[in-house]
Design a protein around this nucleic acid. Sequence first.
DNA 1: TTCATGCGACCAACTGGTCGGTAGAGTTAA
DNA 2: TTAACTCTACCGACCAGTTGGTCGCATGAA
Lengths: 194, 194
Amino acid sequence: MAKNTQLKIIEKAEKLLWHKGYEGTSLNDVVGKAGVSKGAFFHYYPNKQAISQDVINKYTREQLVVPLEKHLGAATSVKNGLFNWVSEFFETFKGQNFKGGCLLGNMALEMSDQNEAARETIKQHFLDLENIIVSHLKPLMDDGMLVMEPRQIARLLIAALQGVIMMSKVHKDNNRASREFQSIAQFIEYAIKD
Amino acid sequence: MAKNTQLKIIEKAEKLLWHKGYEGTSLNDVVGKAGVSKGAFFHYYPNKQAISQDVINKYTREQLVVPLEKHLGAATSVKNGLFNWVSEFFETFKGQNFKGGCLLGNMALEMSDQNEAARETIKQHFLDLENIIVSHLKPLMDDGMLVMEPRQIARLLIAALQGVIMMSKVHKDNNRASREFQSIAQFIEYAIKD
DNA sequence: TTCATGCGACCAACTGGTCGGTAGAGTTAA
DNA sequence: TTAACTCTACCGACCAGTTGGTCGCATGAA
C-alpha cells in the first residue's frame, strides 16, 4: 500500500472539512472516500473533534505558515514577500474556481461559538501568522519604513485577506476577485516602504 | 396569541441559524424553541432551505440595509454615516460578547459552495449593500472628495468589515476588536473627505 | 360545509460512536 | 524449528439517537 491508512483518512477529511465544513462533513463520508472502515478511523482518532483539530493544524501549517515563511525568506523585501504570499494564495484559490477558500477562516466562523477548544486552536493559528509577519516588520519600524505599527499592519492584512476570500467565494467572479486582491496589494504597498 | 406562529418560527430560526449555522441548526430545535409543532412548521415552509432563505432576507434587511440607510440619511456627511453604521454594528456585536457576528457572512462561507441558490441570494444582498454605499459616494466623486472609485471603497469597506468580524469572533477580545474596528474608521477617514 | 391552521406520531435515512472479532508481523521459549 | 503468544492495524455489523420530512386528523372561524 503506497499511502498508509491514517494519511488517507486525514487527506480526505481535510478536503471534506475544507469544502463542506464541520457539521456538513460526516464520518461515513470520510471513511467512504478514504476507502477505509469505521474501525480504522476510530483506531486512529477518538472522535470527530480530534481529526478536525488535526486537519486544522495540518492545513494551517502547509497552506499558510510554510508558504508565508517561504516567501518572506526568499523575497528581496518584506513588502515583496507579503505580496508574493497573498498572490500565491489567490492563484491557488482562483485555480479552484473560488471553492473552499481558507479552511482556517471557514472553521473560525463555524466553530468559534460552538467549541471553545477549537476556537482556542484557531485563535492561536491566527496569532502565529500575525507574529510571523510582525517579526519581519519590526526591523523596518526603526527605519521609519512603516506608516503604522507592525502589529496593526499584520492584523489588517490578515483580516482584509479573510474578508476578500469571503467575497470571492460568494461572487465567484474572476475580475472582481482580482481587483479585490489588488486592493490588498495596494495596502501592502501603502503601508510598507522597504 | 400575541405573536402568530410563523413569526415565532422565523424568529427562533433566525437566532439558531445565526449562532449555529445552517447544518448546525435542526428543525426539531427550531420548532422546539418556537413552541410549535412540526406540522405547523411545514405548513408555512416547504423545507429547511426555504426558511433559511427567508431568514437571510430578514436579517439582511433589518440588521444591515435598514441601519445603513438610516445612518446615511441622518448623518451630516457620507463619511459620518458610514462611520455610524459600522459603529452601531460593532456595539451590537460587542454587546453579544462577539457571538454570532454577521449572519450574512456566516452563511456566505458555509453555503456558497453547497447551495447555488443560497449563494445567489447572498451575493445579491452583498451587491445591494455595495450599491447603497456607491449611490451615496458617487456625488462626492466629481467633487474630488474620494481617493479611489466609489465602488472600490464600498467593496473594501464590506470586505474589511467581514474580515474584522471574523477576527473578533475568534479572539473575543474587546480591546483588540475595538482597535480593528478603529482601523476601519481610519480607512473611511482616509478614503472619504466630505 | 369549507378551509386555513395546527397537532404530533411516524418514517427512512443517516449520525457519531462502539464492539467483538480477525489477519498477520514480531517476540518468545521449548 | 516450531508452537504459543502478544500486539497493532483493521474490519464491518451494530447501536441509540437524530435528521429532514410526511401524513392523517382535529379545531374553529367564515
